Amino acid sequence: MKLLIDADGCPVVDIAVGIAKKHRLECLILCDTSHVFEKEGASTLVFSKGADSVDFALVNIASSGDIVITQDYGLAAMCLSKQALVLNQDGKEYTVENIDGLLSFRHTAKKIRNAGGRLKGPSKRTPAQDEAFKAALTRILSGKLT
Rank of each mutant, 00 (worst) to 15 (best):
A20Y: 02
A20D: 03
K21P: 00
K22Y: 13
K22E: 15
K22M: 13
K22I: 11
K22D: 14
H23A: 14
H23I: 09
H23V: 05
R24E: 04
R24F: 02
R24T: 01
R24K: 11
R24A: 02
E26L: 01
E26D: 03
E26A: 04
C27V: 07
C27N: 07
L28G: 01
L28E: 03
L28S: 03
I29M: 14
I29Y: 10
I29P: 08
I29N: 12
I29W: 11
I29K: 14
L30D: 00
L30G: 01
L30H: 01
C31S: 13
C31Q: 07
D32P: 07
D32A: 09
D32G: 11
S34N: 15
S34T: 13
S34C: 11
S34F: 14
H35E: 12
H35T: 08
H35A: 11
V36K: 12
F37R: 11
F37I: 12
F37P: 05
F37N: 09
F37A: 09
F37C: 09
E38A: 12
E38I: 11
E38P: 02
K39S: 12
K39P: 02
K39N: 10
E40A: 15
E40Y: 13
E40F: 13
G41Q: 07
A42M: 05
A42E: 06
A42V: 06
A42I: 05
A42N: 06
S43N: 05
S43P: 00
T44L: 07
V46R: 11
V46H: 05
F47I: 05
F47L: 09
F47N: 00
S48L: 09
S48V: 05
K49V: 12
K49L: 06
K49I: 12
K49S: 11
G50L: 03
G50R: 03
G50N: 04
A51F: 12
A51D: 08
A51L: 08
D52R: 06
D52Q: 13
S53V: 02
V54W: 00
V54Q: 00
V54S: 01
V54L: 02
V54M: 01
D55M: 00
D55G: 00
D55W: 00
F56W: 10
F56G: 04
F56R: 05
F56L: 13
F56C: 04
F56Q: 04
A57N: 11
A57W: 03
L58I: 13
L58Y: 08
V59E: 05
V59A: 12
V59R: 08
V59F: 07
N60S: 08
N60K: 09
I61F: 06
A62C: 03
S63L: 14
S63D: 13
S63R: 15
S63A: 14
S64V: 15
G65E: 04
D66W: 09
D66S: 08
I67Q: 09
I67P: 07
V68K: 02
V68Q: 04
V68F: 03
I69H: 03
I69P: 02
T70N: 07
T70R: 06
T70Y: 04
T70P: 10
Q71G: 14
Q71R: 11
D72V: 11
D72G: 08
D72N: 14
Y73S: 06
G74N: 14
G74S: 13
L75A: 04
L75Y: 02
A76V: 06
A76Q: 10
A77P: 03
A77I: 01
M78R: 10
